[in-house]
C-alpha cells in the first residue's frame, strides 16, 4: 500500500491494485482512511520562518571564521618574522658550528710558524735576505762603538 500511496507502484502490480480497488469498496474505504490519516494533515503544513537572530548568529560566526582565515596585519607580520627567524636545525647549526670552530682554531697557530711565515714574506715579497745590509751592525761598518750600543746589539 505504501508504494501505491506514494505513486511508486508501476506495471502489473499497479494494474492489479487498481482493478481490485475498483471492485472492493472496503479496500477503497481503507485507502481513503489511510490518506486522511497519514497524508492529508501534512499537505496543509506551512513553511515556517526562523527568528531574525538566527541570521545574526550565522553572520557573526562567518565573520569570525573570515577573521581567523585572514589575521590582522601586525599579526601576519609577526607570523612572517617568526617563520623567517625560526631556527632550522641542520641548515643553521652546521654553518654556525663551522664558524665557531674556525674562530677557535685559527688563532692557535704556533708563534714559530708565524715568524717563519713572516720570514718567507720578507724574503719572497720584499727581497730582504740575511745578506742584506739592513741587519748589518754599525760596529762592523765603523759604527759608534759605544758600550751602550754594544750592549744592545
Amino acid at each position: 500500500m505504501t508504494d501505491y500511496l506514494d505513486g511508486e507502484m508501476q506495471g502489473e502490480a499497479l494494474k492489479t491494485v487498481e482493478t481490485h480497488l475498483a471492485q472492493c469498496s472496503a479496500c477503497r474505504q481503507f485507502v481513503e482512511d489511510l490518506k486522511q490519516a497519514v497524508a492529508t494533515p501534512f499537505k496543509e503544513a506551512e513553511e515556517k520562518t526562523p527568528s531574525e537572530r538566527v541570521w545574526a548568529n550565522i553572520r557573526e560566526s562567518i565573520l569570525q571564521e573570515q577573521l581567523k582565515r585572514k589575521p590582522a596585519v601586525p599579526e601576519r607580520l609577526l607570523d612572517f618574522l617568526g617563520r623567517v627567524f625560526q631556527p632550522k636545525p641542520l641548515a643553521v647549526l652546521v654553518p654556525v658550528m663551522a664558524v665557531i670552530l674556525l674562530a677557535v682554531f685559527l688563532p692557535l697557530q704556533s708563534p714559530v710558524q708565524k715568524y717563519e711565515d713572516a720570514g718567507i714574506y720578507l724574503v719572497q715579497e720584499l727581497g730582504i735576505t740575511g745578506d742584506s745590509d739592513y741587519f748589518e751592525s754599525d760596529i762592523e761598518n765603523g759604527g759608534l762603538g759605544t758600550v751602550v750600543e754594544e750592549f744592545f746589539m
Partner: peptide, 9 residues
C-alpha cells in the same frame, strides 16, 4: 532558511 528551519522543526 524557511525550508531548512521547517524541516528541522
Amino acid at each position: 532558511s524557511g525550508f531548512v528551519y521547517s524541516v528541522a522543526l
